[in-house]
Nucleic acid binder design. Structure first.
Lengths: 342, 342
DNA sequence: ACTAAAAATACAATCGATTGTATTTTATTT
DNA sequence: AAATAAAATACAATCGATTGTATTTTTAGT
């Protein structure tokens, strides 16, 4: 029993042309108010609902925006998605959420599938493997606007909604320094992602400001999964020298390191202070609780969606690329309560 | 620069009718193999891609399945979604994921929006407020198959993919009993959801098996958020009697209770043992680590999707409703290491 | 080789909304 | 009241694939 009322049914019922009905329903100025009222009333009476599929075909687009994230189980991304959905729904858009699972191949497939489904626009937070942007350029070629949020790449003329990774990396590192740490390691991610590059630059800048020499061997790169954090912690121990602080570019790797170090008998924060990044819920619960950088996923999601929809609606006109940079906050917890020993 | 190759272009290029092209591309037996080969080759050559929107309109359905979960930030749901996407993509379906955020009103809107977008089917894990099923019945009325996974309601003739909540509740409670607990409280959720009803029944059955009297005042109902867990723990303390075990119907409330009890000076598990439900990642990290029931979201997601797609593809034929019940596993950690005091 | 049956292909309508152009109706001006 | 402009509505094509029916071509049987 599908609801079969079409604009033609309304047209027949009112002895009016379907095109007028269509325009009335879209509130076109070409239809007199009197007529609009009649049509709306009838539509209501018959329980008319626009057939989205027909509309999509004719307009060759949809009211759906695509979202590609590495994985939705990360708190940052799930809260970003909440923000995206909130804003999108308010403006009458649907959201398709997909996970790349950090795989470039999957990301490519997702983009292709989104194009095939004629999404109106795409929000992307790229995978760790994304060093080649051809699939994203394809979107642009097909006239589908997209923008990066959080994890971005350098593509000319593209909009971004980001946090200030440099400043955040700086803050995290300086926090360790002000707590007395001087031998500070950094867990970084793939440098193809600007966020990790910028966090690392912030780390370095903080060291420099406080006249601590930058030691490349203390910067460990990985994919920042829990096992990577463990592995990195292990490497630090085998350096066989005093390390009194770690700034990890995400919480997950920080927690991996904490687990490993605890087992290895390293006391946190007495022997070594640690700061993570993202403020995953788990950070507040682990013992000691993890000092971290809070980035409001919800806010980023909302802003990114608003910006994307603005671009979608501006249609043909060329849109100025825009980059929003949001503030973060350092949340000081127990893991960084290092007390300098003389 | 959109890719504009249509079946008509192929038809013209090959001097053949568009209907034959369409049938060939859909591998219809009505087209000779020789012709199919020619058409496929030409399609490849010209880079033809089916216009999904047109196909959707004509067929009055899409290759999209809708998923409604209470919130994607819960590990169980995000892993279920991973399973859903995996299976759906394999079979050429897209997935729209939406969160009800435990609100019936939102759930209603989501269902309406999915119907408007002609999803091919829907997977639902209902909100805590869902006591009225009219919106779901509407789906059925419109010929859109749907099934429940995890959180289900009693609707005749509907399929479900569930875990054995009764057995799991029984196991969790018996685990506490075998560890020496005798005064065991239970944190339960809204009884409109079968899962909470069944977990509570399992709890009661375990007590009965071990000849422990069932005390209704030890069963506390809430929405099982972290604050609810705290609140419930507080209530237990004000009972002013010895409670030596808690079986919480989810991890989040168990963790809320742990936090509260720790602050109140109750030692876990020495004074009180606790078991949660779901195996959220946080359960492994909190101290003491939380004993819980592991339910494989990924497996549930895969199974649910497979079953739904089977129903979608069976078209007109009446489908036998089917209920799959998956096994769970108790993961014994530190929070339940109670030692009975004489 | 001829006919009947089967296979392959063509024709044409359709899904429902949108939109450029044409026509009719209404309002305005002299 | 006639002429013109402006507003409102109707006409008709279109988006691209699908599908029931009709027609043509091929195959098989005698």
């Amino acid at each position: 029993m599908q609801n079969n009322v079409t604009i033609h049914d309304l047209a027949t019922a009112l002895n009016i042309d379907a095109s007028t009905v269509s325009r009335a329903l879209n509130d076109s100025p070409r239809v007199a108010q009197r007529t609009k009222d009649k049509i709306l009333a009838k539509a209501d009476e018959l329980g008319y609902q626009r057939n989205v599929l027909a509309s999509n075909l004719r307009k060759n687009t949809t009211n759906t925006i695509g979202v590609i994230v590495p994985r939705i189980s990360r708190h940052f991304f799930s809260s970003a998605i909440a923000g995206i959905e909130e804003t999108a729904f308010q403006l009458g858009y649907n959201v398709i959420i997909c996970q790349s699972l950090e795989s470039l191949e999957r990301e490519r497939n997702l983009v292709a599938s989104m194009m095939a489904n004629r999404v109106a626009g795409v929000l992307v937070s790229v995978s760790m493997e994304t060093t080649n942007y051809a699939h994203l350029q394809l979107l642009k070629k097909n006239g589908i606007p997209f923008l990066f949020f959080d994890r971005h790449c350098e593509i000319d003329g593209n909009s971004n909604v980001l946090i200030d990774d440099f400043q955040s990396g700086f803050d995290a590192t300086e926090h360790l320094i002000l707590n007395g740490c001087t031998q500070i390691a950094h867990f970084s991610g793939p440098q193809s992602l600007k966020i990790y590059e910028n966090r690392a630059r912030g780390y370095r800048a903080a060291l420099e400001k406080h006249h601590i020499s930058y030691q490349p061997e203390l910067v460990l790169q990985s994919r920042l999964m829990e096992e990577d954090g463990m592995e990195s912690a292990k490497k630090l121990l085998t350096l066989n020298r005093r390390i009194d602080g770690v700034f990890a570019a995400n919480d997950v790797s920080a927690i991996g390191a904490m687990k490993y170090l605890k087992k290895a008998g390293v006391k946190i924060p007495d022997d070594l202070a640690i700061v993570g990044f993202s403020n995953e819920p788990i950070a507040a619960v682990i013992e000691p609780s993890l000092t971290t950088i809070d980035q409001s996923g919800h806010e980023i999601g909302k802003r990114a969606t608003a910006l994307l929809l603005q671009q979608i609606k501006s249609e043909e006109q060329v849109v100025q690329p825009e980059t929003l940079v949001l503030k973060t906050a350092l949340i000081a917890r127990d893991s960084s309560k290092y007390v300098k020993k003389e």
